[in-house]
Amino acid sequence: MKRNLVQVDAVMVLILVLLVVQIWLFSATLDSYLAGHRTVALPAAIVSLLLFGACGGLLGFLKRGSDRQD
């Protein structure tokens, strides 16, 4: 159980870091969109998708670990 807790804590912290980057990216993109710079929207959306994919991958990793325990 202790190992599981360490694992979920580690994944949670990693996802939290990725989420902070994603929130920053969203606010920066919104700011530049409102300033009339529309070309950043596509690369920002791609990077956001990658970050979401990484978060989903980490959650999947956690789920696989949990299933293995069961």
């Binding site: 959306a45 956001s48 970050l51 989903g56």
Partner: peptide, 22 residues
Amino acid sequence: TKFLVLTSFGMFVGQCWILAKS
């Protein structure tokens, strides 16, 4: 952790909204 991933999805949807508006 699941809630955080859901929030991450929300951020991605927001980016798509900005892209669509652009």
